[in-house]
Design a protein around this nucleic acid. Structure first.
Length: 489
RNA sequence: GGCCCUAUCGUCUAACGGUUAGGACACAAGAUUUUCAAUCUUGCAAUCGGAGUUCGAUUCUCCGUGGGGUCACCA
Protein backbone atom coordinates (compact mmCIF):
# COMPACT_ATOMS: atom_id res chain seq x y z
CA UNK A 1 0.00 0.00 0.00
CA UNK A 2 1.29 3.39 -0.90
CA UNK A 3 2.05 6.00 1.70
CA UNK A 4 -0.76 8.02 3.14
CA UNK A 5 -0.07 11.70 2.66
CA UNK A 6 -2.54 14.35 3.68
CA UNK A 7 -2.27 18.10 3.68
CA UNK A 8 -3.72 21.21 5.18
CA UNK A 9 -3.62 24.16 2.84
CA UNK A 10 -4.49 27.48 4.43
CA UNK A 11 -4.37 30.86 2.79
CA UNK A 12 -2.36 33.53 4.55
CA UNK A 13 -5.27 35.92 4.75
CA UNK A 14 -5.42 36.36 8.51
CA UNK A 15 -5.49 34.26 11.66
CA UNK A 16 -5.93 30.51 11.63
CA UNK A 17 -9.67 29.87 11.81
CA UNK A 18 -10.76 27.48 14.54
CA UNK A 19 -12.86 25.56 12.02
CA UNK A 20 -9.77 25.05 9.93
CA UNK A 21 -8.09 23.41 12.88
CA UNK A 22 -10.65 20.64 12.87
CA UNK A 23 -10.13 19.99 9.17
CA UNK A 24 -6.40 19.95 9.81
CA UNK A 25 -6.89 17.66 12.80
CA UNK A 26 -8.68 15.00 10.75
CA UNK A 27 -6.12 15.19 7.96
CA UNK A 28 -3.38 15.01 10.56
CA UNK A 29 -4.89 12.01 12.32
CA UNK A 30 -5.38 10.08 9.12
CA UNK A 31 -1.79 10.59 8.07
CA UNK A 32 -0.31 9.79 11.48
CA UNK A 33 -2.51 6.79 12.03
CA UNK A 34 -1.20 5.29 8.80
CA UNK A 35 2.40 6.22 9.47
CA UNK A 36 2.13 8.70 6.66
CA UNK A 37 3.03 12.33 6.25
CA UNK A 38 1.15 15.47 7.07
CA UNK A 39 2.07 18.41 4.88
CA UNK A 40 1.23 22.04 5.22
CA UNK A 41 1.00 24.02 2.02
CA UNK A 42 0.54 27.75 1.86
CA UNK A 43 -1.97 28.83 -0.77
CA UNK A 44 -1.06 32.43 -1.38
CA UNK A 45 -2.26 32.97 -4.92
CA UNK A 46 -4.54 35.80 -3.89
CA UNK A 47 -2.14 38.68 -3.71
CA UNK A 48 -4.79 41.19 -2.67
CA UNK A 49 -5.94 39.35 0.42
CA UNK A 50 -2.49 38.53 1.72
CA UNK A 51 -2.03 39.58 5.33
CA UNK A 52 1.44 40.28 6.63
CA UNK A 53 2.44 37.93 9.42
CA UNK A 54 -0.29 35.39 8.87
CA UNK A 55 2.03 32.67 7.61
CA UNK A 56 4.02 32.94 10.82
CA UNK A 57 0.84 32.82 12.85
CA UNK A 58 -0.30 29.62 11.17
CA UNK A 59 2.91 27.89 12.14
CA UNK A 60 2.80 29.27 15.66
CA UNK A 61 -0.74 27.98 16.08
CA UNK A 62 0.21 24.50 14.93
CA UNK A 63 3.14 24.56 17.27
CA UNK A 64 1.06 25.65 20.25
CA UNK A 65 -1.54 23.01 19.44
CA UNK A 66 1.10 20.32 19.33
CA UNK A 67 0.32 19.28 15.77
CA UNK A 68 3.53 18.11 14.12
CA UNK A 69 3.96 19.07 10.51
CA UNK A 70 6.15 16.78 8.42
CA UNK A 71 6.62 18.91 5.35
CA UNK A 72 6.22 22.63 4.76
CA UNK A 73 8.20 25.76 3.93
CA UNK A 74 9.55 25.56 7.49
CA UNK A 75 9.99 21.81 7.76
CA UNK A 76 11.36 21.04 4.33
CA UNK A 77 10.45 17.96 2.30
CA UNK A 78 11.13 16.62 -1.16
CA UNK A 79 8.01 17.90 -2.88
CA UNK A 80 8.46 21.62 -2.41
CA UNK A 81 8.26 24.48 -2.74
CA UNK A 82 5.37 24.31 -0.28
CA UNK A 83 4.08 27.73 -1.10
CA UNK A 84 2.16 28.40 -4.26
CA UNK A 85 3.63 31.75 -5.16
CA UNK A 86 6.92 29.97 -5.81
CA UNK A 87 5.38 27.41 -8.13
CA UNK A 88 4.06 29.75 -10.77
CA UNK A 89 5.79 28.12 -13.76
CA UNK A 90 4.53 24.70 -12.76
CA UNK A 91 0.90 25.73 -13.03
CA UNK A 92 1.47 27.47 -16.32
CA UNK A 93 2.94 24.29 -17.74
CA UNK A 94 -0.19 22.33 -16.85
CA UNK A 95 -2.47 25.08 -18.10
CA UNK A 96 -0.69 25.02 -21.47
CA UNK A 97 -1.11 21.29 -21.56
CA UNK A 98 -4.84 21.78 -21.13
CA UNK A 99 -4.91 24.30 -23.93
CA UNK A 100 -2.99 21.97 -26.21
CA UNK A 101 -5.42 19.15 -25.56
CA UNK A 102 -8.34 21.45 -26.26
CA UNK A 103 -9.64 21.44 -22.72
CA UNK A 104 -8.87 25.04 -21.88
CA UNK A 105 -8.77 28.31 -23.77
CA UNK A 106 -7.47 31.84 -23.62
CA UNK A 107 -10.07 34.38 -22.61
CA UNK A 108 -9.78 38.11 -23.08
CA UNK A 109 -12.90 39.20 -21.28
CA UNK A 110 -12.48 41.96 -18.74
CA UNK A 111 -14.20 44.84 -17.00
CA UNK A 112 -17.79 45.67 -17.65
CA UNK A 113 -18.11 43.30 -20.55
CA UNK A 114 -17.20 40.40 -18.30
CA UNK A 115 -19.52 41.55 -15.52
CA UNK A 116 -22.49 41.84 -17.82
CA UNK A 117 -21.88 38.45 -19.30
CA UNK A 118 -21.51 36.91 -15.88
CA UNK A 119 -24.85 38.16 -14.67
CA UNK A 120 -26.41 36.64 -17.77
CA UNK A 121 -25.08 33.27 -16.73
CA UNK A 122 -26.12 33.53 -13.09
CA UNK A 123 -27.22 30.09 -11.90
CA UNK A 124 -25.86 28.46 -15.05
CA UNK A 125 -22.39 27.52 -16.14
CA UNK A 126 -20.50 30.51 -17.46
CA UNK A 127 -19.29 30.25 -21.05
CA UNK A 128 -16.97 32.79 -22.59
CA UNK A 129 -17.33 33.91 -26.21
CA UNK A 130 -13.63 33.14 -26.60
CA UNK A 131 -14.29 29.50 -25.87
CA UNK A 132 -14.14 28.47 -29.49
CA UNK A 133 -11.63 30.96 -30.85
CA UNK A 134 -8.71 29.25 -32.50
CA UNK A 135 -5.63 29.09 -30.34
CA UNK A 136 -3.43 30.58 -33.01
CA UNK A 137 -5.62 33.70 -33.12
CA UNK A 138 -5.55 34.00 -29.35
CA UNK A 139 -1.79 33.63 -29.34
CA UNK A 140 -1.57 36.53 -31.71
CA UNK A 141 -3.67 38.73 -29.45
CA UNK A 142 -1.39 37.84 -26.60
CA UNK A 143 1.64 38.73 -28.67
CA UNK A 144 0.04 42.13 -29.21
CA UNK A 145 -0.02 42.64 -25.46
CA UNK A 146 -3.64 41.79 -24.78
CA UNK A 147 -4.11 40.64 -21.18
CA UNK A 148 -5.60 37.19 -20.89
CA UNK A 149 -6.81 34.49 -18.56
CA UNK A 150 -6.96 30.79 -19.19
CA UNK A 151 -10.31 29.13 -18.67
CA UNK A 152 -11.36 25.53 -18.32
CA UNK A 153 -13.44 24.32 -21.23
CA UNK A 154 -16.27 22.53 -19.49
CA UNK A 155 -18.04 20.08 -21.80
CA UNK A 156 -21.72 20.73 -22.37
CA UNK A 157 -24.55 18.31 -21.70
CA UNK A 158 -22.67 15.88 -19.59
CA UNK A 159 -23.22 14.42 -16.17
CA UNK A 160 -20.10 14.82 -14.10
CA UNK A 161 -19.84 12.30 -11.33
CA UNK A 162 -17.97 12.97 -8.15
CA UNK A 163 -17.55 10.12 -5.71
CA UNK A 164 -16.98 11.70 -2.37
CA UNK A 165 -15.44 9.71 0.43
CA UNK A 166 -17.89 11.18 2.88
CA UNK A 167 -20.86 12.50 0.95
CA UNK A 168 -21.12 9.63 -1.49
CA UNK A 169 -21.83 9.75 -5.21
CA UNK A 170 -22.91 13.15 -6.44
CA UNK A 171 -23.97 14.02 -9.95
CA UNK A 172 -23.53 17.44 -11.46
CA UNK A 173 -24.98 18.71 -14.68
CA UNK A 174 -22.00 20.08 -16.60
CA UNK A 175 -24.20 22.86 -17.98
CA UNK A 176 -24.24 24.50 -14.58
CA UNK A 177 -20.47 24.21 -14.12
CA UNK A 178 -18.65 27.38 -15.16
CA UNK A 179 -15.64 27.70 -17.42
CA UNK A 180 -13.50 28.48 -14.43
CA UNK A 181 -10.47 30.72 -14.63
CA UNK A 182 -7.41 28.52 -14.28
CA UNK A 183 -4.72 31.14 -14.75
CA UNK A 184 -5.49 34.69 -13.75
CA UNK A 185 -4.39 37.68 -15.78
CA UNK A 186 -1.51 38.23 -13.37
CA UNK A 187 -0.15 34.82 -14.28
CA UNK A 188 -0.98 33.18 -10.99
CA UNK A 189 -3.21 30.11 -10.91
CA UNK A 190 -6.66 30.06 -9.39
CA UNK A 191 -7.38 27.67 -6.55
CA UNK A 192 -9.01 25.12 -8.83
CA UNK A 193 -5.95 24.44 -10.95
CA UNK A 194 -3.47 24.87 -8.13
CA UNK A 195 -5.01 22.25 -5.81
CA UNK A 196 -5.12 19.60 -8.46
CA UNK A 197 -1.57 20.21 -9.62
CA UNK A 198 -0.12 20.54 -6.14
CA UNK A 199 -1.93 17.58 -4.65
CA UNK A 200 -0.74 15.49 -7.55
CA UNK A 201 2.86 16.68 -7.41
CA UNK A 202 2.97 16.43 -3.63
CA UNK A 203 1.56 12.91 -3.84
CA UNK A 204 -1.40 13.65 -1.62
CA UNK A 205 -3.34 10.42 -1.13
CA UNK A 206 -6.44 11.72 0.66
CA UNK A 207 -7.92 15.19 0.45
CA UNK A 208 -9.78 16.59 3.43
CA UNK A 209 -11.43 19.94 2.91
CA UNK A 210 -14.44 21.92 4.03
CA UNK A 211 -17.79 21.16 2.44
CA UNK A 212 -18.08 24.63 0.96
CA UNK A 213 -15.77 23.24 -1.71
CA UNK A 214 -18.20 20.52 -2.70
CA UNK A 215 -19.90 22.57 -5.46
CA UNK A 216 -16.50 23.08 -7.07
CA UNK A 217 -15.57 19.43 -7.07
CA UNK A 218 -16.80 18.78 -10.65
CA UNK A 219 -14.12 21.24 -11.76
CA UNK A 220 -11.48 19.20 -10.00
CA UNK A 221 -12.92 16.04 -11.51
CA UNK A 222 -12.62 17.57 -14.96
CA UNK A 223 -9.11 18.90 -14.47
CA UNK A 224 -7.94 15.50 -13.30
CA UNK A 225 -9.54 13.85 -16.26
CA UNK A 226 -8.13 16.31 -18.81
CA UNK A 227 -4.67 16.05 -17.31
CA UNK A 228 -4.87 12.28 -17.19
CA UNK A 229 -4.33 12.22 -13.45
CA UNK A 230 -5.86 9.88 -10.97
CA UNK A 231 -8.04 11.83 -8.54
CA UNK A 232 -7.35 11.04 -4.89
CA UNK A 233 -10.41 10.47 -2.71
CA UNK A 234 -11.90 13.72 -1.48
CA UNK A 235 -13.57 14.02 1.91
CA UNK A 236 -15.78 17.04 2.26
CA UNK A 237 -16.16 17.81 5.93
CA UNK A 238 -19.32 19.43 7.31
CA UNK A 239 -19.06 22.98 8.57
CA UNK A 240 -19.01 24.18 12.13
CA UNK A 241 -21.81 26.64 12.70
CA UNK A 242 -22.11 29.32 15.30
CA UNK A 243 -24.89 29.00 17.92
CA UNK A 244 -27.22 31.24 15.92
CA UNK A 245 -26.95 28.86 13.00
CA UNK A 246 -24.77 30.74 10.57
CA UNK A 247 -21.21 30.10 9.60
CA UNK A 248 -18.77 30.61 12.44
CA UNK A 249 -17.55 34.11 11.86
CA UNK A 250 -15.47 36.75 13.49
CA UNK A 251 -18.44 39.04 13.80
CA UNK A 252 -20.24 36.67 16.17
CA UNK A 253 -17.35 35.91 18.48
CA UNK A 254 -13.89 34.58 18.48
CA UNK A 255 -12.80 32.23 15.71
CA UNK A 256 -9.07 32.79 15.84
CA UNK A 257 -7.15 29.82 17.15
CA UNK A 258 -4.52 31.99 18.73
CA UNK A 259 -7.20 34.01 20.50
CA UNK A 260 -8.67 30.88 22.04
CA UNK A 261 -5.26 29.99 23.33
CA UNK A 262 -4.74 33.49 24.62
CA UNK A 263 -8.06 33.32 26.45
CA UNK A 264 -6.67 30.39 28.36
CA UNK A 265 -8.03 27.34 26.62
CA UNK A 266 -5.59 24.45 26.76
CA UNK A 267 -4.60 23.01 23.42
CA UNK A 268 -5.63 19.57 24.71
CA UNK A 269 -9.13 20.82 25.46
CA UNK A 270 -9.45 22.67 22.19
CA UNK A 271 -8.39 19.63 20.21
CA UNK A 272 -10.57 17.27 22.23
CA UNK A 273 -13.59 19.48 21.73
CA UNK A 274 -12.96 19.94 18.02
CA UNK A 275 -12.33 16.26 17.30
CA UNK A 276 -15.79 15.39 18.62
CA UNK A 277 -17.50 17.85 16.31
CA UNK A 278 -18.15 15.42 13.51
CA UNK A 279 -16.41 12.30 14.72
CA UNK A 280 -17.29 9.81 17.42
CA UNK A 281 -14.99 7.23 18.88
CA UNK A 282 -15.53 3.59 17.99
CA UNK A 283 -15.57 2.50 21.62
CA UNK A 284 -17.70 -0.10 23.35
CA UNK A 285 -20.78 1.51 24.76
CA UNK A 286 -22.68 -0.07 27.59
CA UNK A 287 -26.35 0.79 27.79
CA UNK A 288 -26.96 3.39 30.48
CA UNK A 289 -23.29 3.80 31.32
CA UNK A 290 -21.17 6.87 30.84
CA UNK A 291 -19.11 7.05 27.68
CA UNK A 292 -15.60 8.31 27.49
CA UNK A 293 -15.26 11.69 25.87
CA UNK A 294 -11.79 12.67 26.98
CA UNK A 295 -9.22 11.73 24.37
CA UNK A 296 -5.63 12.82 24.02
CA UNK A 297 -4.24 13.65 20.62
CA UNK A 298 -2.41 10.35 20.43
CA UNK A 299 -5.49 8.38 21.43
CA UNK A 300 -7.43 10.22 18.79
CA UNK A 301 -4.85 9.40 16.16
CA UNK A 302 -5.03 5.77 17.14
CA UNK A 303 -8.83 5.60 17.15
CA UNK A 304 -9.52 7.81 14.16
CA UNK A 305 -11.21 6.22 11.20
CA UNK A 306 -12.99 7.59 8.18
CA UNK A 307 -16.04 5.44 8.85
CA UNK A 308 -16.73 7.27 12.10
CA UNK A 309 -16.99 10.66 10.48
CA UNK A 310 -20.36 12.34 10.61
CA UNK A 311 -21.56 14.37 7.66
CA UNK A 312 -24.00 16.83 9.08
CA UNK A 313 -23.11 20.28 10.30
CA UNK A 314 -22.27 20.89 13.94
CA UNK A 315 -22.86 23.91 16.11
CA UNK A 316 -19.95 25.27 18.08
CA UNK A 317 -21.04 24.90 21.69
CA UNK A 318 -18.81 27.04 23.86
CA UNK A 319 -20.18 25.60 27.13
CA UNK A 320 -18.93 22.20 26.17
CA UNK A 321 -15.54 23.61 25.25
CA UNK A 322 -15.40 25.21 28.68
CA UNK A 323 -16.25 21.90 30.26
CA UNK A 324 -13.41 20.19 28.43
CA UNK A 325 -11.10 22.96 29.51
CA UNK A 326 -12.14 22.57 33.15
CA UNK A 327 -11.56 18.86 32.94
CA UNK A 328 -8.08 19.31 31.55
CA UNK A 329 -7.14 22.03 34.02
CA UNK A 330 -8.26 19.77 36.84
CA UNK A 331 -6.45 16.67 35.69
CA UNK A 332 -3.47 17.62 33.56
CA UNK A 333 -0.26 16.63 35.30
CA UNK A 334 2.19 19.45 34.72
CA UNK A 335 -0.18 22.32 35.16
CA UNK A 336 2.53 24.70 36.37
CA UNK A 337 4.57 24.10 33.24
CA UNK A 338 1.54 24.58 31.01
CA UNK A 339 0.64 27.70 32.93
CA UNK A 340 4.03 29.37 32.78
CA UNK A 341 4.46 28.56 29.11
CA UNK A 342 1.13 30.17 28.41
CA UNK A 343 2.03 33.16 30.55
CA UNK A 344 5.37 33.57 28.80
CA UNK A 345 3.77 33.44 25.42
CA UNK A 346 0.79 35.71 25.94
CA UNK A 347 1.14 37.72 29.11
CA UNK A 348 4.80 38.48 29.72
CA UNK A 349 3.89 42.12 30.19
CA UNK A 350 1.68 41.81 33.26
CA UNK A 351 2.69 43.19 36.66
CA UNK A 352 3.02 39.91 38.54
CA UNK A 353 4.78 38.12 35.68
CA UNK A 354 8.23 37.70 37.21
CA UNK A 355 6.83 36.94 40.66
CA UNK A 356 4.84 34.08 39.21
CA UNK A 357 7.76 32.69 37.26
CA UNK A 358 10.06 32.76 40.30
CA UNK A 359 7.50 31.28 42.66
CA UNK A 360 8.52 27.92 44.09
CA UNK A 361 5.00 27.43 45.46
CA UNK A 362 3.31 28.04 42.12
CA UNK A 363 2.16 24.47 41.64
CA UNK A 364 0.61 24.40 45.14
CA UNK A 365 -1.21 27.62 44.43
CA UNK A 366 -2.48 26.39 41.09
CA UNK A 367 -3.60 23.13 42.63
CA UNK A 368 -5.69 25.00 45.19
CA UNK A 369 -7.40 26.96 42.43
CA UNK A 370 -7.64 24.53 39.57
CA UNK A 371 -11.00 23.09 40.56
CA UNK A 372 -12.59 26.48 40.38
CA UNK A 373 -11.10 27.78 37.14
CA UNK A 374 -12.51 27.14 33.72
CA UNK A 375 -9.68 28.83 31.84
CA UNK A 376 -6.06 29.77 32.45
CA UNK A 377 -7.16 33.39 32.67
CA UNK A 378 -9.42 32.53 35.57
CA UNK A 379 -6.61 30.57 37.10
CA UNK A 380 -4.34 33.57 36.79
CA UNK A 381 -6.94 35.83 38.37
CA UNK A 382 -7.46 33.44 41.22
CA UNK A 383 -3.80 33.42 42.25
CA UNK A 384 -3.25 37.17 41.87
CA UNK A 385 -3.87 37.86 45.54
CA UNK A 386 -0.82 35.88 46.61
CA UNK A 387 1.34 38.45 44.90
CA UNK A 388 -0.54 41.68 45.46
CA UNK A 389 -2.36 42.71 48.61
CA UNK A 390 -5.93 43.91 48.15
CA UNK A 391 -6.59 47.63 48.19
CA UNK A 392 -9.88 49.39 48.86
CA UNK A 393 -11.82 46.36 49.93
CA UNK A 394 -15.46 46.61 49.01
CA UNK A 395 -17.50 45.75 52.09
CA UNK A 396 -20.79 46.42 50.39
CA UNK A 397 -21.02 43.09 48.67
CA UNK A 398 -23.91 40.75 49.33
CA UNK A 399 -21.91 38.38 51.50
CA UNK A 400 -20.89 40.82 54.19
CA UNK A 401 -22.94 43.97 54.07
CA UNK A 402 -25.55 42.80 56.62
CA UNK A 403 -23.01 42.86 59.40
CA UNK A 404 -20.89 45.66 58.02
CA UNK A 405 -20.83 47.64 61.27
CA UNK A 406 -19.28 44.75 63.19
CA UNK A 407 -16.44 44.17 60.72
CA UNK A 408 -13.77 46.39 62.28
CA UNK A 409 -14.17 44.71 65.67
CA UNK A 410 -14.07 41.29 64.08
CA UNK A 411 -10.84 42.14 62.25
CA UNK A 412 -9.27 43.33 65.51
CA UNK A 413 -10.20 40.05 67.14
CA UNK A 414 -8.87 38.03 64.22
CA UNK A 415 -5.56 39.87 64.50
CA UNK A 416 -5.38 38.97 68.17
CA UNK A 417 -6.11 35.33 67.43
CA UNK A 418 -3.59 35.01 64.62
CA UNK A 419 -0.91 36.88 66.53
CA UNK A 420 -1.07 34.16 69.13
CA UNK A 421 -0.23 31.54 66.51
CA UNK A 422 3.34 30.51 65.76
CA UNK A 423 5.53 32.43 63.34
CA UNK A 424 5.67 29.57 60.88
CA UNK A 425 2.30 29.36 59.13
CA UNK A 426 2.96 25.85 57.97
CA UNK A 427 2.73 24.66 61.56
CA UNK A 428 -0.68 26.22 62.14
CA UNK A 429 -3.38 23.79 63.10
CA UNK A 430 -6.48 23.91 60.96
CA UNK A 431 -8.79 22.54 63.60
CA UNK A 432 -7.74 25.11 66.16
CA UNK A 433 -8.17 27.85 63.62
CA UNK A 434 -11.63 26.68 62.59
CA UNK A 435 -12.72 26.54 66.21
CA UNK A 436 -11.33 29.98 66.95
CA UNK A 437 -13.11 31.46 63.97
CA UNK A 438 -16.41 29.81 64.80
CA UNK A 439 -16.18 31.08 68.37
CA UNK A 440 -15.69 34.52 66.94
CA UNK A 441 -18.83 34.29 64.86
CA UNK A 442 -20.72 33.22 67.94
CA UNK A 443 -19.37 36.16 69.93
CA UNK A 444 -20.80 38.58 67.38
CA UNK A 445 -24.02 36.67 66.98
CA UNK A 446 -23.31 35.78 63.37
CA UNK A 447 -23.55 32.69 61.22
CA UNK A 448 -20.66 30.26 61.57
CA UNK A 449 -19.05 31.18 58.29
CA UNK A 450 -19.25 34.96 58.62
CA UNK A 451 -15.95 35.44 60.42
CA UNK A 452 -14.25 33.37 57.75
CA UNK A 453 -15.66 35.72 55.18
CA UNK A 454 -14.25 38.77 56.91
CA UNK A 455 -10.82 37.17 57.00
CA UNK A 456 -11.14 36.14 53.37
CA UNK A 457 -12.05 39.66 52.31
CA UNK A 458 -9.00 41.05 54.07
CA UNK A 459 -6.59 38.57 52.56
CA UNK A 460 -7.98 38.03 49.10
CA UNK A 461 -10.03 41.17 48.62
CA UNK A 462 -12.87 39.14 47.17
CA UNK A 463 -15.66 36.98 48.58
CA UNK A 464 -14.39 34.13 46.39
CA UNK A 465 -11.16 32.34 47.02
CA UNK A 466 -9.38 29.04 47.21
CA UNK A 467 -9.68 27.24 50.56
CA UNK A 468 -8.68 29.91 53.05
CA UNK A 469 -6.54 27.94 55.46
CA UNK A 470 -4.40 26.36 52.73
CA UNK A 471 -4.10 29.72 51.01
CA UNK A 472 -2.87 31.38 54.21
CA UNK A 473 -0.26 28.70 54.56
CA UNK A 474 1.16 29.84 51.25
CA UNK A 475 1.57 33.37 52.61
CA UNK A 476 3.55 34.43 55.67
CA UNK A 477 2.20 35.31 59.08
CA UNK A 478 3.62 38.77 58.63
CA UNK A 479 1.86 39.27 55.33
CA UNK A 480 -1.44 38.00 56.70
CA UNK A 481 -1.31 40.38 59.66
CA UNK A 482 -0.28 43.27 57.43
CA UNK A 483 -3.30 42.73 55.26
CA UNK A 484 -5.61 42.59 58.27
CA UNK A 485 -4.15 45.75 59.71
CA UNK A 486 -4.38 47.67 56.47
CA UNK A 487 -8.03 46.67 56.21
CA UNK A 488 -8.59 48.56 59.43
CA UNK A 489 -7.83 51.89 57.79
C1' G B 1 -33.71 31.84 -7.46
C1' G B 2 -30.56 27.39 -9.78
C1' C B 3 -27.48 23.47 -8.08
C1' C B 4 -25.59 20.60 -3.96
C1' C B 5 -25.29 18.71 1.13
C1' U B 6 -28.00 17.67 5.47
C1' A B 7 -32.00 16.31 9.45
C1' U B 8 -32.17 11.87 16.88
C1' C B 9 -33.12 15.87 23.52
C1' G B 10 -31.69 23.35 23.53
C1' U B 11 -26.32 21.63 21.90
C1' C B 12 -22.49 17.50 20.59
C1' U B 13 -23.68 12.66 19.56
C1' A B 14 -24.78 6.64 20.11
C1' A B 15 -28.09 2.89 18.48
C1' C B 16 -26.21 -5.28 12.41
C1' G B 17 -34.28 -3.20 10.39
C1' G B 18 -36.33 -5.57 16.52
C1' U B 19 -33.32 -1.20 22.84
C1' U B 20 -37.61 1.17 28.40
C1' A B 21 -34.04 5.45 21.80
C1' G B 22 -28.09 5.43 25.41
C1' G B 23 -24.18 8.99 26.86
C1' A B 24 -22.11 13.99 27.37
C1' C B 25 -22.73 19.54 27.84
C1' A B 26 -26.31 22.93 29.58
C1' C B 27 -30.48 23.39 32.88
C1' A B 28 -33.37 22.06 37.59
C1' A B 29 -33.68 19.75 42.51
C1' G B 30 -31.22 17.45 46.63
C1' A B 31 -26.72 15.88 49.53
C1' U B 32 -21.94 17.91 51.10
C1' U B 33 -19.63 22.74 52.49
C1' U B 34 -15.94 28.57 56.16
C1' U B 35 -16.77 31.46 50.18
C1' C B 36 -16.70 30.21 45.11
C1' A B 37 -16.15 25.79 43.16
C1' A B 38 -15.48 20.62 42.93
C1' U B 39 -17.92 16.03 44.03
C1' C B 40 -22.21 12.61 44.52
C1' U B 41 -27.55 11.47 43.65
C1' U B 42 -31.93 12.45 41.05
C1' G B 43 -34.78 14.88 37.40
C1' C B 44 -36.13 17.46 32.64
C1' A B 45 -35.58 16.66 27.53
C1' A B 46 -35.27 14.00 20.97
C1' U B 47 -36.13 10.31 16.20
C1' C B 48 -39.05 17.30 11.28
C1' G B 49 -43.99 16.02 8.47
C1' G B 50 -46.38 12.67 4.98
C1' A B 51 -46.51 8.43 1.98
C1' G B 52 -44.23 3.68 0.68
C1' U B 53 -41.15 -1.16 1.41
C1' U B 54 -41.40 -4.66 5.66
C1' C B 55 -44.25 -9.08 10.39
C1' G B 56 -41.55 -4.75 12.28
C1' A B 57 -38.61 1.65 10.31
C1' U B 58 -34.54 6.42 14.09
C1' U B 59 -32.39 3.15 10.41
C1' C B 60 -34.27 1.73 3.46
C1' U B 61 -37.10 4.62 -0.82
C1' C B 62 -39.95 8.86 -2.51
C1' C B 63 -42.33 13.69 -1.73
C1' G B 64 -42.61 17.89 1.29
C1' U B 65 -40.51 21.15 5.14
C1' G B 66 -36.50 23.14 7.96
C1' G B 67 -31.19 24.16 8.23
C1' G B 68 -26.55 24.87 5.72
C1' G B 69 -23.33 25.56 1.52
C1' U B 70 -22.39 27.48 -3.34
C1' C B 71 -23.12 30.21 -7.85
C1' A B 72 -15.64 35.63 -8.33
C1' C B 73 -9.44 36.88 -12.39
C1' C B 74 -11.39 34.70 -3.12
C1' A B 75 -9.71 30.63 -1.19
Amino acid sequence: MSTVRTRFAPSPTGFLHIGGVRTALYAYAWAKKNNGKFVLRIEDTDVKRFVEGSIEEIFIAFDLLGLNIDESINHGGEYGPYIQSERKEIYMKYAKQLIDSGNAYYCFLEGEELENLKSEFKGKGFRSPYRDVETSKSLEMIKNGKPFTIRLKVPNNETIIHNDGLQGRIEFDSNIVSDEVLIKSNGLPSYHLAVVVDDYLMKISHVFRAIEWLPSSPKQVLIHRFLNLEMPPYYHLPVILDPEGGKLSKRKGNVSTKEFLREGYLSEALLNFLMLLGWSAPIDRVFGEKEREIFSLSEFVELFDLKDLNNSNAIFNKEKLLWFNKEYIKTINNLDKKFTEWLKYFYSDIDIYSKVLDDKDLLNKLNLSKERSATLIELLDSIRFYYTAPVNINWDNEKVKEYKEKILDIIKDIIKILESYSEDVTTWNQETWVNDMKELSKKYNLKGGDSFMVLRMCIVGSPFSPPLFEAMQLLSKHEILERLKSALN
